[in-house]
């Protein structure tokens, strides 16, 4: 268990570092896929709710720390998106590509929107005009596309492993 936690922490740190580094190289950072959401979706679909919520909180907290401005918005968004995925996955067959794509899209949208709402309500003095719902949608789309591709590879490798 402790080994899994260490692996998860290292992997999370690498993922956030990768996201912050690549966002300036490949895409404009606004539309760069939220890699944390993809990981949250994966954990939520494959592990128990308690573990997925804890992992999501931790992942969100690392994201918050990497921004260096606010602590809390991403962690709250991550918890909400994780619980949302968990509840939706009961009604959707998660191994299908389209359903994972929809799940990640919704999770990303919930995460960014809830983070924005939290920042908006807490920090009234800040300028929030640069946020737009269209940006959230674009980010959600790119996350869902990349996430579904990652999931496809993971499912295939799992099947091979089992065989």
């Amino acid at each position: 268990m402790s080994k899994n936690i260490i692996v998860f922490v290292v992997f999370s740190l690498c993922l956030i570092a990768l996201e912050s580094s690549l966002s300036s190289i490949i895409f404009p950072s606004k539309y760069f896929p939220d890699l944390a959401v993809i990981l949250i979706s994966y954990i939520s679909l494959n592990y128990s709710q308690n573990i997925s919520i804890s992992a999501s909180f931790f992942l969100g907290l690392i994201q918050d720390l990497s921004t260096g401005i606010y602590l809390g918005p991403n962690s709250l968004g991550a918890i909400l998106s994780s619980s949302c995925i968990k509840s939706l996955s009961k009604n959707l067959f998660s191994e299908q590509i389209l359903s994972t794509c929809i799940l990640i899209f919704i999770a990303s949208l919930i995460k960014t929107t809830s983070s924005f709402i939290l920042i908006y309500f807490f920090d009234r003095s800040g300028d929030h005009d640069f946020f737009s719902i269209l940006d959230f949608i674009y980010k959600a789309i790119s996350s869902s596309v990349v996430g579904s591709i990652v999931f496809l590879f993971l499912v295939k490798s799992k099947k091979k492993h089992r065989a």
């Binding site: 909180f57 907290l61 809390g72 939290l118």
Partner: peptide, 9 residues
Amino acid sequence: YSFISFQLM
């Protein structure tokens, strides 16, 4: 966790 998030914020 939500409470902690609010507090952290």
